[in-house]
């Protein structure tokens, strides 16, 4: 076993963004990641580096993560210039080191966007996404006020469409990937989910205007159709939802 793994371990050079706090200047630092196998996930590789740093008395690299299975949307790193590292439909926590080879140099940076201030190292403040949802990303129903589940029929097609939109994990990669720092894919997905369901239609108009306004107030940019968002999205959320958002917005102007 040891012979086998010794043969297959990699050493990588990491160039990592370090920043003490929101108002501090940041800079790149270089570290070596040693004894990494193809089965390490990217975050497990960083764990190894951090353990080494701690033993040397150096503060480890701060990064956000929690579920480590691609669903909570917490992990958020730009790797070699690409949000989540550029593997199709993959979050950083699901990226595995088999995508890299011995001797590679890897640049690691936080999400960079006006609406996401850096808190420390690779950790950013994404509460702006919550504020967009608070501005209308819900169907207003109080607990206890619901009719029987099957009283609201929804065609399989609509249910599937809504689910495609609802799969968004709110990680913010779309914002980080967008040259304008826009949150249109995020907002479009939520608006489309409700627009395609009878439950959400009643308040469609105030939802769209409210969420778009919140988006602007939070400092997100405008969409100029680069579609980098879809490419970076670990859930493959389709830009058709941005078109839907625009349609739903136009409707509010003519209603």
């Amino acid at each position: 076993m040891s012979e086998h793994t010794a043969h297959e371990t990699m050493t990588l050079k990491l160039i990592v963004w370090r920043q003490k706090g929101p108002d501090e200047p940041g800079r790149f630092e270089t570290y070596l990641a040693r004894d990494i196998t193809e089965h390490h996930s990217f975050l497990e590789m960083l764990d190894v580096v951090n353990e080494d740093l701690i033993r040397e008395g150096i503060e480890p690299i701060v990064f956000d993560h929690d579920c480590r299975e691609g669903i909570c949307g917490t992990c958020s790193q730009v790797i070699n210039g690409l949000a989540h590292g550029g593997q199709t439909r993959t979050t950083v926590c699901q990226l595995h080191m088999r995508k890299f080879k011995d001797g590679d140099t890897i640049y690691i940076e936080p999400w960079r966007a006006k609406a996401f201030p850096i808190l420390k190292d690779l950790m950013v403040d994404r509460s702006a996404l919550d504020r967009i949802i608070q501005a209308g990303g819900y169907a207003s129903v109080n607990t206890g006020a619901a009719p029987d589940g099957n009283a609201i029929l929804i065609s399989k097609e609509d249910a599937d469409y809504a689910m495609d939109a609802a799969e968004c994990i709110g990680c913010g990669a779309c914002v980080a990937a967008c040259p304008n720092g826009a949150a249109m894919l995020f907002t479009g997905a939520k608006v489309s989910q409700f627009a395609s369901l009878p439950q959400g239609r009643e308040e469609g108009r105030i939802r769209v205007t409210g969420m778009l306004q919140a988006m602007q107030e939070c400092g997100f940019g405008n969409c100029t159709n680069h579609y980098e968002c879809q490419a970076a999205c670990p859930k493959g959320i389709d830009v058709k939802f941005i078109a839907r958002l625009n349609r739903e917005y136009l409707k509010t102007l003519f209603m």
Binding site: A146, S155, A159, A162, Q193
Partner: peptide, 17 residues
Amino acid sequence: DQCVAQGVPFARDYGGY
């Protein structure tokens, strides 16, 4: 019932149920 009313996109059959 509550979750359906919130817009949770549960799986449906072709009849919409």
